[in-house]
């Protein structure tokens, strides 16, 4: 059974149908990808999953629980975390603060006991810091923990955004174009990185990506979206040879 299920999702903005009859079933523990030409509705699909948009019709299920209509913070609390196409770090805060903020959703004691530094809140804060430093250490960012997020090199910012999503203890990670703006060798590293974290944190990964080499290499299953509709799904080889996919990407061959 899939960890994430989109059931007949339709998303309409005024007269524009951004997504139509979208059915997606992401299997637990797999790396699956959503591809398609610009404007196909990939990020809209992510926004529907994470609660930024409520779909016009259809439902989203996470672990068989209906999550349609929940606010983004509730959905994150249930275990779905995301990254953004244009990096959205807390730019003026430190690397460690970025990770600590993602831990805030687990805080149990209230603001008063945190302000007054009650023993149980101190313990909570201490655990949070230890956990965050451990995560940074495992991802190789620990030496940068006191740097301001916006001062990091681009690749590290992407990595930090993934780290931040992991810090929420999510089990399903949605990556919106993680390799955007990366050169081939950085993309290779990212591919290994995604594989590693999937294994280490027992994640399911669902990503939007334009780098075809990356997608073809690491995805267990690929969904192809065009003008809001799913035109193909399957393994890399299946999708690559699908005439509708070729048409969507390269256009129709006309008779001379």
């Amino acid at each position: 059974m899939g960890i994430l299920k989109l059931d007949n999702i339709k998303m309409q903005f005024g007269g524009v149908v951004a997504l139509n009859n979208l059915n997606i079933d992401v299997e637990k523990g797999k790396i699956e990808a959503l591809i398609g030409p610009n404007g196909a509705g990939k990020t809209t699909a992510f926004n529907v999953i994470t609660g930024v948009y409520t779909p016009t019709s259809g439902d989203v299920y996470y672990n068989d629980k209906k999550i349609t209509g929940l606010t983004p913070d509730k959905i994150t609390k249930m275990g779905i975390a995301r990254t953004f196409q244009n990096i959205r770090l807390f730019k003026n805060l430190t690397v460690l603060d970025n990770i600590l903020i993602a831990n805030h959703l687990h805080v149990k004691s209230n603001f008063l006991s945190h302000t007054l530094r009650m023993p149980w809140s101190r313990q909570e804060e201490k655990n949070m810091r230890e956990k965050s430093e451990m995560l940074l250490d495992r991802l190789g960012l620990l030496s940068l923990k006191n740097e301001i997020a916006s001062s990091l090199p681009y690749g590290e910012q992407r990595k930090l955004e993934i780290a931040r999503a992991l810090a929420t203890d999510a089990k399903l990670l949605l990556l919106d174009e993680p390799a955007a703006g990366m050169n081939p060798s950085e993309t290779m590293q990212l591919s290994n990185f995604i594989h590693d974290i999937r294994d280490e944190f027992q994640l399911t990964i669902f990503m939007i990506e334009h780098h075809m080499d990356l997608v073809m290499e690491i995805s267990d299953k690929i969904y192809v979206l065009d003008f809001g509709e799913l035109i193909a799904q399957g393994t890399a080889d299946e999708v690559k040879n699908d005439p509708r996919v070729i048409e969507a990407y390269l256009g129709v061959e006309e008779d001379a």
Partner: peptide
């Protein structure tokens, strides 16, 4: 003390980027 606590960090997160803060599970 409040600003330097976890709640204070959540406040700063909202200031920095509401959309990202909400995506990190902070109830705006």
């Amino acid at each position: 003390l409040l600003i330097n606590s976890s709640y204070g960090r959540a406040f700063k997160a909202i200031r920095e980027d509401e959309i990202a803060a909400e995506a990190m599970g902070i109830n705006l």
